[in-house]
Simulated assay, not measured.
Amino acid sequence: MPKITRLGWIAYAIAIATIVLDQVSKAWILSTLGADPGASQPLLGPLHLTMVHNQGMSFGLFRGSELSRWLLTAFSAAVVVGLAIWARKTTRWLMAGGLGLIIGGAFGNNLIDRIRYGYVVDFIDVTRLHFPWVFNVADSGITVGVALLLLDSFLSEEKTLAHPDGHGL
Rank of each mutant, 00 (worst) to 15 (best):
L43G: 05
L43D: 04
G45W: 12
G45K: 12
G45L: 11
P46W: 15
P46I: 15
L47Q: 06
L47F: 12
H48N: 14
L49H: 10
L49M: 11
T50A: 13
T50P: 11
M51T: 09
V52T: 14
V52R: 13
V52E: 13
H53D: 09
H53T: 06
H53W: 10
H53G: 05
H53N: 09
H53M: 03
N54W: 13
Q55C: 07
G56V: 08
G56D: 10
G56T: 11
M57A: 15
S58R: 05
G60F: 12
L61P: 10
F62H: 12
F62L: 14
R63M: 06
R63G: 08
G64K: 09
S65G: 04
E66F: 06
S68C: 00
S68P: 00
R69H: 02
W70Y: 06
L71Q: 02
L71T: 05
A74T: 03
A74N: 04
A74V: 05
A74F: 03
S76E: 01
V79S: 02
V80M: 00
V80A: 02
V80N: 01
L83A: 02
A84K: 09
W86A: 10
W86P: 07
A87G: 12
A87H: 10
A87P: 11
R88A: 15
K89S: 15
T90N: 14
T91Y: 09
R92T: 12
R92H: 12
A96L: 15
A96Y: 15
G97L: 12
G98L: 14
L99M: 09
G100W: 08
L101W: 07
L101T: 05
I102D: 02
I103G: 05
G105K: 01
G105P: 04
F107T: 04
F107K: 02
G108C: 00
G108K: 00
G108T: 01
N109F: 04
N109Y: 03
N110P: 00
